[in-house]
Simulated scan of single mutants.
Amino acid sequence: MTKNYETFARVYDAIMDDSLYDLWTDFSLRHFSKGKTKLLELACGTGIQSLRFAQAGFEVTGLDLSEEMLKVAEKRAQEAGVKIDFVAANMMDLSGIGQFDLVTSYSDSLCYLADEVEMGDTFTEVYKHLNDGGTFIFDVHSTYQTDEVFPGYSHHENAEDFAMVWDTYEDEAPHSIVHELTFFIQDEDGRFTRYDEIHEERTYELLTYDILLEQAGFTDVKVYADFEDKAPTDKSARWFFVARK
């Protein structure tokens, strides 16, 4: 792995609000099936949430499409002295991954799926690989967040060794957005390298998620909002689904 990518991953981690990981962990611990320990984290990225779960006593497997992100995650787990299995795979095909008591996907990772078909395929895969009595928890952007809050959003950040410009626009599909990110990261000889990224996200009405979960086999589904054990309102930013098998 290049030093550049490590730096890039560190910048990614730096722009994340660290307190969110505590909130995701606390929400999970409140809603996980009791006495269950074998956990699969979908779209684990650089492994911060996987590490939190492992430190809380779970037997964790972290899955992500990006092998580079997983290298950062592996290094993070090694430095913490914690054993976590990291797997490079697509969440729409979990064959060969094994069976789990608990499956999570946080930080609106499922919003990166292209459409309802991919969302439904992912739910079906999770259901197949979840043990009876197990729990699947995920969060997604609310339609209020994608339709009212994000369009026109702009965030600029300057630090000594990096700068970031983040702008968000409404996309063509209903409840979809595009994030345009530009990073300037300083390398070892003091020069700045530019990185450009496009992130496309999409969410759906609450009813759509309910139908897709039901089609996958889930019959016990609860919906909460913004890390609290309360029902969503019309201005909730983030929806949390707790589905039991």
Rank of each mutant, 00 (worst) to 15 (best):
V223I: 13
F32A: 00
N131K: 09
T219Q: 12
G81K: 03
L63I: 12
D132Y: 10
D210K: 15
T208H: 05
D101M: 05
L206S: 14
L212S: 10
S28F: 04
V178N: 05
L102H: 01
G35T: 09
V242M: 04
L102W: 01
V165T: 02
A225H: 07
F150R: 05
F8L: 13
L102P: 01
A173H: 09
Q78K: 15
S19A: 09
T233E: 08
F136T: 00
V117R: 10
T61K: 09
L29I: 07
Y5V: 14
K128F: 06
Y127T: 02
N90I: 11
D18T: 11
Q99F: 12
L130T: 04
S95F: 09
E157C: 09
Y224D: 01
T135C: 02
K245Y: 02
V87L: 14
Y195D: 08
I84K: 02
V60N: 00
K75W: 10
R238E: 04
K34V: 09
R244L: 02
F32I: 01
S33H: 02
G120R: 12
T146C: 06
V221M: 00
F183Y: 13
D132Q: 15
L40R: 01
D229L: 04
F183A: 08
I177G: 00
E200C: 13
D189H: 15
L29A: 07
S105R: 02
G190Y: 11
A243N: 00
L102S: 00
G47Q: 02
A159Q: 13
F192T: 06
V221E: 00
H141Q: 07
L20I: 13
S107C: 15
F183P: 00
A14V: 12
F123S: 03
Y5D: 05
E188M: 13
D108A: 09
T25Q: 10
T37F: 10
F53E: 01
F27G: 01
G98H: 11
R202G: 11
R202W: 14
E214V: 02
Y209E: 02
E59M: 15
